[in-house]
Design a protein around this nucleic acid. Structure first.
Lengths: 134, 134, 134, 134
DNA sequence: GTGGTCTAGACCACA
DNA sequence: GTGGTCTAGACCACG
């Protein structure tokens, strides 16, 4: 799976890394149970600091996406645990974005379409990957 | 309009302030052309520093939401200028959120419904406010 | 002569006023010896403060463009005195602008053309005005 | 690159700093991709406050001249983005200067020559620097 | 009164 | 080490 870091972004590197791994999982580029590169390896490949990769992995573990084991390294979780507050959290993240879309005169339909497109394209990618594996 | 700052949040204060003003504009709690409190006044009301408010106002000005009129202080812009890259920007913001929703097993319908609810409730609030003014 | 103030500009109002009067003089909309409106009158017309107009007039007087007299009010100077350091001053003003033009990949020719156009259009306006008066 | 701050100038320090960096870029004293001193370092060298340098850097970043790389601090941008309204902006800056030159009886030729000299001397400095590097 | 600039000094997140 | 944020308090230009 290709990971691209933008060093000039305002988003911290560890967050970019974390986000891309989540996106990878959503699009099927990463599967449950799949092994991730070691901290060392990934840091070297991306040309970033060990700490940075470690921090991203830690956060993914805290969120239930990743299982860290001394022997088997980093493995994508098989079962992502329910996060009871997830919808509320998501709602809070979405709120300012939706507000800005309204202010920028985006229509309800355009906004819905944008979310739908993102959602469907990711799910489609995942389905394609799964069919290939069968 | 009520503004609430969460000092424990990881989101910087000036960003919380900026976001809430945008939300206020989307929900009609703030209207185009309306005067905002002066930097000093708002800082005192919220118990934060003058510079923090100043920074939020500056950002809103740069984004075209606010006009800093030399005579009357801060005034919500009448015409919010188009931001040519706005949809792309929004898409990039939405991508990791949608990805996480998929990973957390949220259905397409639930996600759509969540966005719809946010969008509609804000637009409704705005419409209510406008009807009251007539 | 029409004067337009932009209250949202970063340029102070008295400077906008001063600049437009100088432009008016360069384009012949104002002539040497012509009377300007009184401070009171102009302030009322533009909807700005007395002090602001006063400050603009003072600066124009200091620069030799305007003669202020208690009886005859404000009169455009007949002979604008030489300002020995003017070329140096102008050069210093121009330097960052030319530098930015270079950085923005504007060609020497385009820059020259831009200055020429501004210069010629003002001089032409002035000549037109003078012919009309004969 | 030598930077000189005039504490008596009416131009704010952060603007002087910003202007001199742009001039440095135009004259080749600063090259695309070159690292700038850290905010702290430059502030100490110039005897000014950290925040003042920070503000200049932020503005340069907003204008596309500077990239604030998370790893290596401040780096001059490789590709300065087009500013669609740049010519209009420049024209507005130039207008009062040209008008004043006309009022001060500067000839079209002298004005053209002045701009040409500034432009050519900066471009020449840049070319010299580039030849030296080969 | 307003916003804008500058200083001084602190703490934090990031790498 | 870096930049980013926040605070406190001062002065100035503008209107």
């Amino acid at each position: 799976m290709l990971i691209q870091i933008d060093f000039a972004s305002d988003l911290p590197i560890y967050r970019q890394l974390r986000d891309q791994i989540v996106i990878g999982l959503a699009t099927g580029q990463l599967e449950a149970g799949e092994e991730l590169p070691s901290v060392r390896r990934l840091a070297a490949d991306l040309g970033i600091n060990l700490h940075t990769v470690h921090k991203a992995y830690q956060q993914l573990r805290d969120e239930g996406f990743l299982v860290l084991d001394r022997r088997s390294g980093a493995v994508m979780a098989k079962n992502i645990p329910d996060q009871p507050e997830f919808q509320n959290w998501l709602s809070r993240q979405l709120e300012p974005l939706v507000a800005e879309a309204i202010c920028r005169k985006m229509s309800t339909n355009d906004l819905q379409a944008l979310v739908r497109t993102l959602d469907q394209s990711m799910r489609q990618l995942k389905k394609d990957g799964e069919m290939q594996n069968e």
